[in-house]
Design a protein around this nucleic acid. Structure first.
Lengths: 152, 152
DNA sequence: CTAAATCATTGACATTCTCAATGATCGGAT
DNA sequence: ATCCGATCATTGAGAATGTCAATGATTTAG
């Protein structure tokens, strides 16, 4: 975020060996994306986290809280807090699990769906900006490789 | 980290639209890498953060603290804490900036160099495991695309 | 039918993030 | 030369996040 990083400038330290570390590259790109996303989501009273939960609640997959925790790499207790907040705003509701009464599935309300639709547009626009340096095929390749590394 | 994610299993929620969001993919891969890295670095009394600082201090580029903050996407105050800790362990030293007396350059001591060498090997091994699902060329492509998205 | 495991939840604690304020120093404009 | 605004490292405070252990309700395995 300094002058060096703003636009097309390669920081001096990018010469270092660490600049090839996947961990650092992921962290940097993610950090940059996070601030942009949170800025864009503020308008809807959401943060990256709550947006992700809302988004999955809108997916039609009827995720349980445990599934949300695993999928979002969060502790189950963090999901409780996030769902509490979304539920209190009437964006989401907890339903009894179909087959297992221990679990609760998280579903979006009509209000939640509407809000998600707008927030989604904003986030996708952020994503487009973040990957502006890549061609469409490059962006697709990046997505494909990340998914492969995660889920193969 | 649940049963679904352990080995080669694609979680049910990966069908959702959100599974294509770059932000989520980055966050997930990074989260997974972080726990592995921190586990491997514990043996050396380092965490991901302090390792990164030590690594840059060993680069020969004589980074200033401001540069470290920008490059690692951290607040300058966090760098102070990290350098304090490394310095108190004798792994790193602060030197007066050559041209600007406001800035301080962070350099590794011989002890720091030695520790970094061992830690580096451990982290590179973690990285290899994390990208095990990718071929060598795919891993190289991933690195290239991440760098391009960041620094173009 | 019992014992172990799993789910959501609560609460405590540590780590990390984000900001504002400070004194020292620098750079540029007069 | 001197003032003025900007930048550097540092400190400190408060919010957000991460991590872990314990709980009651329920399911699954034996």
């Amino acid at each position: 975020m300094s002058a060096e990083d703003i636009e097309g400038g390669v920081p001096r330290l990018a010469q270092a060996a660490i600049a090839g570390d996947i961990g650092l590259l992921l962290a940097k790109l993610r950090a940059a994306g996070s601030v942009v996303n949170n800025k864009a989501l503020a308008e809807f009273g959401l943060r990256e986290r709550s947006y992700s939960v809302l988004r999955l609640a809108c997916s039609g997959l009827e995720p349980t809280q445990r599934e949300l925790a695993d999928f979002l790499s969060l502790d189950p207790s963090q999901i409780v807090t996030l769902v509490d907040e979304l539920e209190s705003r009437g964006l989401v509701s907890r339903e009894q699990g179909r087959t297992d009464r221990r679990q609760k599935t998280v579903l979006a309300t009509p209000d939640g769906e509407r809000l998600h639709e707008k927030a989604e547009a904003a986030v996708l626009e952020c994503e487009r900006e973040q990957l502006a340096a890549l061609t469409d095929t490059e962006a697709a390749t990046l997505r494909k490789l990340l998914r492969k590394a995660l889920w193969t």
